[in-house]
Design a protein around this nucleic acid. Structure first.
Lengths: 208, 208, 208, 208
DNA sequence: TATGAATGAGCCTTCATTCAT
DNA sequence: CATGAATGAAGGCTCATTCAT
């Protein structure tokens, strides 16, 4: 009985292990043997469930990029305070739930190696980018509609929110061996402080 | 095969070929043989001029990015107008000279593969990031000193300028198979307009 | 190609093949591919068992020489006759078990290429030379302690035993295309006779 | 005029440089480029005088193994003291004139890589080994004839003199990064002391 | 003659994938 | 289903040799 349950769990265990290794090493540098080892199975078993390393990779993305946007959209709808607070909340929450978790590694991966795998990039675009942009656009529009923000080109302004997020993800997964941006003199910068700073400059830039 | 003797021209030809292949394939996936082929020489010839693939890459970085900071620092020193104009000029020039050229592919590469090749990351940090941060810091400090900008934490604020640059580079080299950001509805956005938008929101965020 | 699964037998087969090739070609000129071919496996398989050419060589040394000192030390401890007989026995046994076998090729190889591969030389020193010297020293000391040999400087005298061994090995593997020393007129000399001659002159030189 | 003299000197300069490099590095590890550099010419020039690396090697051996045996034979003829002194003198002189000079490197080379080049080994045999053996034989025979040494098999006994010489050469050029044997505890042993020790044990072994 | 830029075959090592058990 | 031994196609780099100048 134990065996049967494990059998069913295999793909999930492999996917979890693969997420970890892909995030740590990137696609090219990931060794399927290490994924197998972390999942506690043999290399051959991995190929039983996933026909190739690339297929494994795609499965990892599909598994982990699922839409949390329903939840976030709901939070948006029920938010009642000033839009500036909403932006602040949104950015900090994003850090907690995405930026500071392995999930951000997927974003880094897609940005880094997406060119090699166009269908993957397209998948990410549909599942993450468009819904994400949509949510941010709604927030900005709310600020404008309520007279809190200037009447700006929302299509362009959303990137003022997205850019720092992408930036901190890329930094964390490349230059920053630890998790954060380093100041010009080399000292690390605390992520919440960093995000707060970005948010304040941004919000002042947006306000009326 | 044809033996052409062109010692003086070789390094440049190799560097140009290398830039192209590195940008297209990334560091790990670049085959020195392909670089050589594109430069029209044999694999051995490449190693006559660059002792290793990593050294070749470093030379590419120096040729395309690092070497320009002297020029940019000089422009900074001789600038006389308002700092806001300076920021606008700086960002647009960056797009012309780096962002919209293959040179930006180098930055993307380092962000994508820096973790796997620490030497590469460290080199880029020393040659590009630190000088770049230094230049931006000086610009911001000038704005503060002249009473144009708020008294903000410069170490954090520099990333409000850097983030959109990194963002647009990553986007261009991964999601955007063409060269630009796409608006939420999928339409492409013209780069200068995009940068102008980012700059204006930022500058309003910085001003007193 | 044929995929035979014989994990237990592989290391031995590879070691045997490697010994042959190393002895014939030397370390640098040995191609791991040839070792693999002689062992009847692919190049990749060799690296499954030995992480590098150097490690393969170390394993060959351990298998063929280093590992025998325990046995020899035991023989020494249990020997009861005159020390002169012990020296004779020792030298003749060395010829049977090492000098006249491919194992002697290893010693020749280390002497020939040790300078180019310091790791190799150091390994051999630790695994063979030091234990070997230790054993010979004990034999000489026994002779001195029992009043059979003169009170000589043991550190120097051990080389009177080692030198003829090294000599015959080098000769066999370089000048003597066959296996033995040649007399001044060019005729071959029978190894046991040669060793006996060396031993008798030596022992008379050592006795009280 | 300077140029012409240099032109004639080229082969000699190359041979001298080659001797040095071959002795230091061995045949395989010698880079023709380094030989050329030490001779102060370009790589191409070397191939103008010697069609291949192997030909260069053979030329070096032929150049350096010339017969000094006439001189030594004369010394033998005029020696008047006890034969034991003659053996001592002979071994110490050998160390001064051969063992401790680059010339010994040739011997090491031939022993190390002679297998790959049988004609070279044969050349060495004719030019060095046979005359050398002949000289030593005459010395031993003198000792026997004068009643100083036992009546031993001279053909075998000569190797009791040769073996320590070969040994010290091999040791010096392989294990001993410096010039001498190391005692069992790792300390270096002074060559003259070493040779003296070998000689005394040997002579006691030879005496009546 | 002399040069040195250019060549290309070759080597050690890695790793995704296969397949006999 | 699971295993893990075995494969073989690359890839970075070296270096003796060639040849246009």
């Amino acid at each position: 009985m134990r065996r049967e349950r494990r059998k069913d769990a295999r793909p999930g265990e492999l996917l979890e292990a693969a997420l970890g290794v892909f995030v740590e090493k990137g696609f090219a540098a990931t060794r399927v043997e290490e994924v197998a080892r972390r999942a506690g199975v043999s290399k051959g078993t991995l190929f039983l469930y996933f026909p190739s390393k690339l297929d494994l990779f795609k499965a990892v993305v599909r598994e982990n990029i699922a839409g949390r946007f329903d939840e976030w959209n709901a939070e948006f709808e029920s938010f009642t305070g000033p839009t500036a607070d909403m932006v602040r909340y949104c950015m900090q929450q994003w850090w907690e739930r995405i930026g500071n978790t392995p999930a951000s590694g997927i974003t880094k991966l897609v940005m880094s190696e997406g060119t090699q795998f166009p269908d993957l990039a397209e998948f990410y675009r549909q599942e993450v980018i468009i819904p994400g942009n949509h949510l941010i656009r709604k927030i900005l529009q709310r600020g404008i509609d309520r007279g809190e923000f200037r009447a700006l080109n929302v299509d362009l302004a959303i990137y003022s929110i997205i850019a720092p997020m992408i930036f901190i993800i890329m930094w964390k997964h490349s230059m920053g061996s630890c998790c954060a941006v380093h100041s010009a003199d080399g000292g690390p910068i605390e992520p919440h402080t960093f995000i707060a700073s970005q948010a304040e400059i941004l919000l002042k830039g947006l306000e009326k």
